[in-house]
Amino acid sequence: MGPTALRARCRLWPAVPAVLAAAVVSLAGCTAVGSPQPSIAAGATASQVPGNTQPSAPLETSQTSAKAPVYWLGRAKDGVYLYREFRDAGGQDNPIATALRLMMSQKPLDPDYFSPWQTPKKLAASVSGRNVITVDVSADAFNTGVDEPTAQLAVQQLVYTATAAAASAGLIDSDQPISVMLLVDGHTSQLAFERVQLGQLMQRDPSMLAPAWIIDPQEGVGLDGPLKVFGRSTRADQELGWQVLRRDSPGKSSVYLSGTVAPGTQSSRPGEFTFTVNLPPGDYEVRVLPKEEASAVPNTGNTAWDSKDVHVGP
């Protein structure tokens, strides 16, 4: 966090309406009395609260690029999880609102990702001096045709994106717990997607994060050199499998290379992994998956934790 943000007792962006400013003072902990206690997820049960055996969900680090971290829902081999992409931010003043608007109005680069949010007429965000992010969004942002699990994931999608944007921009103290308060048209205790009860401070739920995903390269990039894959696993103590599939013809692929990789265990960046392969020109798909499936023939459908299509050569 920058010095200005640290000195500020409550930081409000100019675009935040008066009702949201009042909500930040009363709900986001700018005073020491009467602050609501954070929950892991709106509507979370006790079994969802992470303990020592749960995967970790560390915050993003501060960066100087104009990219905004945006989380999406993604279909994987055994369910739907949260995944992250970096998107062009467009030089907007409020990095949190910018990332959230991208999340609600843009399509993800990866076709396996999606978002149940809709473009809102109104969206504002602010940060208090006690590491609380308050987001106020109009009711038209919610797609009411989603089921309960998707609604829970979508609320966490907002929590992850807001906290990631704030951490990347250096607006919060990443060494302290970060919470998010979600308001709907300036009001608390609303139902998100007509299913999830709001009104509490929320924190990241690690159980909703994908077991592994590829950070770089992003979907559809072209490469003129070796393929260097960088990603992250929430299971730092387990080796991952990887495959590089070559597109033999439209709709047909074969495993060109495969192997395993051990995620790093450094305390500052647990679970990060990388591997590099040299490839001849062509179209490829790189995948990360459980170790025991690294040498398996790929099946149709979503059989990996994450995958990206890349092109090598001119």
Rank of each mutant, 00 (worst) to 15 (best):
P17R: 07
D185G: 02
A164H: 03
A162W: 01
L59W: 12
G225H: 12
V132F: 02
E285P: 01
N299W: 09
S207N: 15
L257G: 01
A15L: 10
T134Q: 02
P17D: 12
V33F: 08
V24H: 07
L223W: 04
T61L: 08
N131Q: 10
P55S: 10
Q157G: 00
Y71E: 03
S295A: 15
N94M: 05
Q37P: 00
Y81V: 04
F114I: 05
S26R: 13
A141C: 09
M1A: 04
S47T: 15
S62C: 12
Y113Q: 10
N299P: 03
V229Y: 04
T274W: 09
V159L: 00
T150Y: 08
S268P: 01
F275R: 01
L245S: 03
Q48L: 14
L182M: 02
T276D: 13
Y83S: 01
Q63I: 07
L209C: 04
L223H: 08
T45V: 12
H187G: 03
G90P: 10
T31W: 10
Q243S: 04
S254Y: 05
P206E: 09
Q37S: 08
L82T: 02
L153T: 02
S307A: 15
R269D: 15
F142C: 00
T260P: 02
V146R: 02
N94T: 01
G282E: 11
I172M: 08
A212S: 10
A162N: 00
D175H: 03
N302R: 14
S189W: 07
P58K: 05
G220E: 13
V184N: 08
Q118A: 12
A192K: 08
D175V: 05
A141P: 03
M181R: 06
D112W: 05
V261I: 13
A296R: 15
R11I: 03
A21Y: 14
P217V: 09
A89R: 05
A162E: 01
E148D: 15
R75V: 13
W213S: 12
A192T: 07
R235A: 02
S174W: 08
A97F: 06
V146S: 02
A151T: 04
V16P: 00
F273R: 00
E194C: 04
P69S: 07
I133V: 12
A8G: 10
S115I: 11
C30L: 06
T163G: 02
P226N: 11
T150M: 07
D136Y: 03
A167C: 05
P290G: 07
D140P: 05
P55Y: 12
